[in-house]
Write a protein that binds this DNA or RNA. Structure first.
Length: 869
RNA sequence: GCGGAGGUGGCGGAAUCGGCAGACGCAGCAGACUUAAAAUCUGCCGGCCUUUACAGGCCAUGGGGGUUCGAGUCCCCCCCUCCGCACCA
C-alpha cells in the first residue's frame, strides 16, 4: 500500500465521483417521495454564467464558493437547500464565433457548457445537477416565449417606431441600459440614434412599484441607489404656456419647482421638439434651421459634455406665463431652442428660471438675458445674499421668496412646500397646470436583429396586423441559416430564412414570422423560477414548487448587473405576480455582490506593460528579469493585454480545489475588490496540510489516522473550550458572509490543537472536520470517513455549541490610567466590581502613588480605567 | 458637479455595540531537525527612544479640530482612491 500525505489530486476526484454516483446533492421538491416538509427551506442562487469559450476564470469561483459554503452550512443546519446551476447561453459571442468559423452557435455553446460544467464539478460545488438547463434549451425558451405572450396579452409588449440606439458593428439595436455615452456597453462600439420600428416592453408602467418595493429588500445600498437613480422619479408639475400669436400652440413644460414660476424669464425647447417649426418666426427661420442641423449632427458625447459653452437660438416666439395676464409685461417669455434641453425627458421643453437654476442662469450669462430675482436668502455670506437678491447670482434650494406674487397669490413668507402647493392649486384651478410625476426610466427596447436569441411568438399579416402564435404551438425554434454575418443594415438576420419566415397560421392564413429575436436578458429574467421545477412540461413552474421555494434567500453575483438584469427580472416577476403566477412581489430577498478579483501587473518607466513572467522582485523594488530596468507594480483587472490572468485549472492542478476555494475566501471580505497574490496561495495550502496532519500521521497507510484518535476518550477541557469558540465563530461568520475571519478562527484552532499534541480527541476531530467541510469539502469528507464519522458528512448536523464554554473561568483585563494601558490583571470571569477594582489598584499601585483617583470605570471582562492625576 | 463605498504594518487584511489597535495569513529574520537542501517545527516581526539585561516610555489607524474617563469606530472641516450617475428641468 502506497504511503501518502495530503493529496488533493487523489481525494478530490474520488469524492466528486461519490457525490455524483450517490446523488448526494439531489434536492427534493414538495410532493416528491422522501421530501421532509418539517424542515425550513433555503434557496441560494448564483448569477448563472454565460459559458464563454475562454472557460472559467478565477472570478467565477469566488461567488460560487461563497454560495456553496452557505448551501453546505444550511444543509448541516437542517434546511432543505435548493442550490442550482445553469447556463445563460444565448448571446452574441457564440454568433461571432459562428461568423468566424462557420460552427453553428448551438454546437459551440454545447461545447462551452461542457467545459464549464467540467470545471465547476472539479471545484466540488454542491449543485443539484439534475436541475441544470440552458436558456437555449427548447423546453426552456418555450416558456420564455410563453411569458412574452403573457406580456403581449396584458398590453405590456407593443411595436413602436421611435429613435433607438443602433449599433452598426454589432448589427443590432440596443436598449438604453446597454448604451453608455453613445457607445455599446458590450464591446464599446459607436452607436447612433435612428428611428426604427421595434418591440418595446412597458416597464414604465411598473416604475413606481419597482422603486417603492426596493425598500423592503436586503440588498447593498449602492445597488438600490443605482436602481433608484435609473428609475429617476421626480415630482413636480406640468405647466401649459400659451404662445403669443399662435392660438393652436401650447407649450407644456415639466418642472420640479413650480414655486419658482414667478421667476420664469424665458423658455427653451429641445431642438427636436415638434412645435419648433410651427412657432418659429420668419426672421429666425434660417438661424433655427441651422441650429437644428448642428444639434442633429453632434454625437451624444458632444451634447452631454458639461464643460462646453451653452448654445441656443431664439425662435422669435413668446410664451405667456400663466401667472400673469397676457398683457402684463412680466408674462412675455422669449422661446429659445437649445440642446441642453433633451427631447426624451419630461416634455422636451422647460420654463427657464435663471434665479433658481444653474443651467438657466449660465444660459442668461451666455446670451445676456435678464435675471429676475425671486429669492432673498440668508446664507451667512452677505455679499452673496445681496448678489442673489439683485439677480446677479442664482440660488438653488429653499429660501425666502421675493417678487413672487400676483393679484391672487403671494409666496412671501411661505415655505417651499407651501409655495409649490399654492402655485399648483392656482394653475389647476385655471386648467393650465397640474401636479405631475416624471420618471427617467424609458420603456425597454426588447428586439434584436441577431440570430442567437429567442424568436418572438408573433405572426405578421399582409394587412399590417399581427397576432400571437397559440401557446400550443410553442416553442418557435430557430431556423437554420447559412450566413450569420450582419447585413450592415438594421434588418433582422432571420429574414434571410425565407422558408421559415413564410408560414400559415392555425386557420391556414398566409403570414410571416417575426424575424427579430429577444435580447440576451430575456432568458435571465426568470431562470430562478425554472430551477424550482425544471422538467415541468405543463407549466413554467408548478404552483407547489413556487410557493415552497420562493423567494430566493440569497443571490450572489457581480455588481455589473445592478441595473440591467436585476431591474428586468424584477419587472417580469411583478408582471407574473399580477397574473397570479407567482406569490411574491419580489424575486430576490437578499442580494450580495462579490468584489472583483484583481491581479498584479508591471509597467516600465514609459508605462508600457511588462508580462508578469518577466518581472522579478529585487529587494523592495521590481525590475525586468532580462533588461534589468526598474518596474512599477500596479493592481489591475485581469486581462490578456496585461498578461496577468490567473487560470483556475492551474491552481487546482498545483494545489487542489480545496486550496483554491479556501484561498479565494481568505483573501479578504467577499464584497471587496482584492488582488490575487500567487505567493499567498501556498499559505492556505499549508493550512490544509496542517489539518491533514492533525488527523493523519505523516506518510500514513491509506485510510489510517493517529492512534490517539482511533477510539473515543475524554476530551481535553482547554481544547474543548477552544473548539466551541471556533465552531461558534465560524457559524456566526458564515451567516454574515465573513468567510475570511471564519477561516482565521479555524487556523487559530489548528495552531492550538497542533501545539496540544495528542490531546485532541476523536470527537473533537470529528467536530472540527464538520466545521471546515463547507470550505474544504473534499478534505472534510476524507477525514470524516477516516475518523469513522459514519454516513456522508454533507448531512451530518452542525456541531452544538455550549454557550457556557464560550468564556474562560479567568479573563484578562487591561488596567488603564487616563486611558493609557498600564497593567494587565487576571480575574475570575464572574468577579464583582469590588474584587476587580481591588486587583486593579494593586496592579498599578506605583503609578497611582501621589495621585488622586477622581473616577473609576470598570467594563467587565474588558478593562479598568482610573481617572487619576 | 451629485450620490455611494473606502483610506489601518513591507503586503492581503482583523478589531461584530465607543473599551487592551494590528487577529489570521504572506513576506522577512533567528533557531531546531538535516551531510546538505526542501519540507516541517519553534521563536521574533508597526515606528522611535531609554536600558547591561529584565523591562519601560513615547508616537501611531489619510490630515486637522471636537465630543468622551476612553475614538480606527461618533461629530465638524479638509485631502486622496475606487464605483455609479451626469445639462433629468
Amino acid at each position: 500500500m502506497a504511503k501518502q500525505n495530503y493529496n488533493p489530486a487523489e481525494i478530490e476526484p474520488r469524492w466528486q465521483a461519490y457525490w455524483e454516483e450517490e446523488g448526494v446533492f439531489r434536492c427534493l421538491n414538495p410532493g416528491d417521495a422522501g421530501f421532509d416538509e418539517s424542515r425550513p427551506k433555503y434557496y441560494v442562487l448564483d448569477m448563472f454564467p454565460y459559458p464563454s469559450g475562454a472557460g472559467l476564470h478565477v472570478g467565477h469561483p469566488e461567488g460560487y464558493t461563497a454560495t456553496d459554503i452557505m448551501a453546505r452550512f444550511k444543509r448541516m443546519r437542517g434546511f432543505n437547500v435548493l442550490h442550482p446551476m445553469g447556463w445563460d447561453a444565448f448571446g452574441l459571442p457564440a454568433e461571432q464565433h459562428a461568423i468566424r468559423t462557420g460552427t453553428h452557435p448551438a454546437i459551440s455553446t454545447a461545447e462551452n457548457i461542457n467545459m464549464f460544467r467540467r470545471q465547476l464539478k472539479a471545484l466540488g460545488f454542491s449543485y443539484d445537477w439534475d436541475r441544470e438547463f440552458a436558456t437555449t434549451d427548447e423546453e426552456y425558451f418555450r416558456w420564455t416565449q410563453w411569458i412574452f405572450s403573457q406580456l403581449y396579452e396584458r398590453g405590456l409588449a407593443y411595436v413602436s417606431e421611435v429613435p433607438v440606439w443602433w449599433c452598426p458593428e454589432m448589427g443590432t439595436v440596443l436598449a438604453n441600459e446597454e448604451v453608455i455615452n453613445g457607445r455599446s456597453e458590450r464591446g464599446d462600439f459607436e452607436c447612433e440614434r435612428r428611428p426604427l420600428k421595434q418591440w418595446m416592453l412597458r416597464i414604465t408602467d411598473y416604475a413606481e412599484r419597482l422603486l417603492a418595493d426596493l425598500d423592503g429588500l436586503d440588498w447593498p445600498e449602492s445597488v438600490k441607489t443605482m436602481q433608484r437613480e435609473w428609475i429617476g422619479k421626480s415630482e413636480g408639475a406640468e405647466v401649459s404656456f400659451q404662445v403669443a400669436g399662435h392660438q393652436d400652440a401650447v407649450i407644456d413644460v415639466f418642472t420640479t419647482r413650480p414655486d419658482t414660476l414667478f421667476g420664469a424669464s424665458f423658455m427653451v425647447l429641445a431642438p427636436e421638439h415638434p412645435l419648433v417649426d410651427q412657432i418659429t418666426s420668419a426672421a429666425q427661420k434660417d438661424a433655427v434651421a441651422d441650429y437644428k442641423r448642428m444639434a442633429a449632427s453632434k454625437s451624444e458625447l458632444d451634447r452631454t459634455d458639461l464643460a462646453r459653452e451653452m448654445s441656443g437660438v431664439f425662435t422669435g416666439a413668446y410664451g405667456l406665463n400663466p401667472l400673469f395676464a397676457a398683457d402684463d409685461p412680466r408674462a412675455k417669455l422669449p422661446v429659445w431652442i437649445a440642446d441642453y434641453v433633451i427631447v426624451t425627458y419630461g416634455t422636451g421643453a422647460i420654463m427657464a428660471v435663471p434665479a433658481g437654476d444653474d443651467r438657466d442662469f449660465r444660459f442668461t450669462q451666455e446670451f445676456d438675458l435678464p435675471v429676475p430675482a425671486i429669492f432673498a436668502p440668508k446664507t451667512g455670506d452677505a455679499d452673496r445674499d445681496a448678489a442673489i437678491a439683485a439677480g446677479k447670482e442664482c440660488f438653488v434650494g429653499e429660501a425666502p421668496y421675493i417678487n413672487s406674487s400676483n393679484a391672487e397669490i403671494d409666496l412671501t413668507g411661505k415655505s417651499m412646500v407651501e409655495a409649490k402647493k399654492l402655485v399648483i392649486e392656482y394653475l389647476s384651478g385655471r386648467e393650465v397646470g397640474k401636479s405631475k410625476i416624471t420618471y427617467r426610466l424609458r420603456d425597454w427596447l426588447f428586439s434584436r436583429q441577431r440570430y442567437w436569441g429567442e424568436p418572438f411568438p408573433v405572426l405578421h399579416y399582409e394587412d399590417g396586423s399581427h397576432a400571437l402564435v397559440p401557446d400550443s404551438d410553442l416553442p418557435i425554434t430557430l431556423p437554420e441559416v447559412d450566413d450569420y454575418r450582419p447585413s450592415g443594415r438594421p434588418e433582422a438576420l432571420l429574414a434571410k430564412a425565407e422558408d421559415w419566415v413564410k408560414t400559415r397560421d392555425a386557420a391556414g392564413r398566409e403570414c410571416k414570422r417575426e424575424t427579430n429575436t429577444m435580447p440576451n436578458w430575456a432568458g435571465s429574467c426568470w431562470y430562478y423560477l425554472r430551477f424550482l421545477d425544471p422538467k415541468n412540461s405543463q407549466r413554467f413552474v408548478s404552483e407547489a414548487a413556487e410557493k415552497y421555494w420562493m423567494p430566493v434567500d440569497l443571490y450572489i453575483g457581480g455588481v455589473e448587473h445592478a441595473v440591467l438584469h436585476l431591474l428586468y427580472a424584477r419587472f417580469w416577476h411583478k408582471v407574473l405576480y399580477d397574473l397570479g403566477q407567482v406569490h411574491t412581489k419580489e424575486p430576490f430577498q437578499k442580494l450580495y455582490n462579490q468584489g472583483m478579483i484583481l491581479s498584479f501587473a508591471y509597467e516600465d518607466e514609459r508605462g508600457a506593460t511588462v508580462p508578469v513572467s518577466d518581472a522579478e522582485e529585487d529587494g523592495e523594488a521590481y525590475r525586468h528579469k532580462k533588461t534589468g530596468v526598474p518596474l512599477k507594480q500596479v493592481v489591475a483587472k485581469m486581462s490578456k493585454t496585461l498578461q496577468n490572468v490567473v487560470n483556475p485549472d492551474e491552481v487546482i492542478s498545483d494545489y487542489g480545489a480545496d486550496t483554491l476555494r479556501l484561498y479565494e475566501m481568505f483573501m479578504g471580505p467577499l464584497a471587496d475588490a482584492k488582488p490575487w497574490n500567487t505567493k499567498d496561495v501556498p499559505g492556505t495550502h499549508r493550512f490544509l496540510n496542517r489539518v491533514w496532519r492533525l488527523i493523519c500521521p505523516e506518510d500514513s497507510e491509506q485510510g489510517s489516522i493517529h492512534a490517539h484518535l482511533a477510539a473515543e476518550r475524554d476530551s481535553d477541557a482547554d481544547l474543548e473550550r477552544l473548539l466551541h469558540r471556533c465552531i461558534h465563530k465560524v457559524a456566526g461568520d458564515i451567516e454574515r458572509l465573513a468567510f475570511n475571519t471564519a477561516i482565521a478562527a479555524m487556523m487559530n484552532f489548528v495552531n492550538e490543537a497542533t501545539k496540544a499534541g495528542d490531546k485532541l480527541s476523536r470527537s473533537q476531530a470529528l467536530r472540527f472536520v464538520q466545521c471546515i467541510a463547507p470550505f474544504a469539502p473534499h478534505l472534510g469528507e476524507e477525514l470524516w470517513s477516516r475518523l469513522g464519522g459514519g454516513e456522508v458528512l454533507v448531512y451530518a448536523s452542525w456541531p452544538l455549541v455550549d454557550e457556557s464554554l464560550l468564556q474562560d473561568d479567568m479573563v484578562e483585563m487591561a488596567v488603564q490610567i487616563l486611558g493609557k494601558l498600564r497593567a494587565r490583571i487576571q480575574v475570575p470571569a464572574d468577579a464583582g466590581e469590588d474584587v476587580i477594582l481591588e486587583m486593579a489598584r494593586a496592579a498599578v499601585k506605583d503609578q497611582l502613588a501621589g495621585k488622586t483617583i477622581r473616577k473609576e470605570i470598570v467594563v467587565k471582562g474588558r478593562l479598568v480605567n482610573f481617572v487619576a492625576n
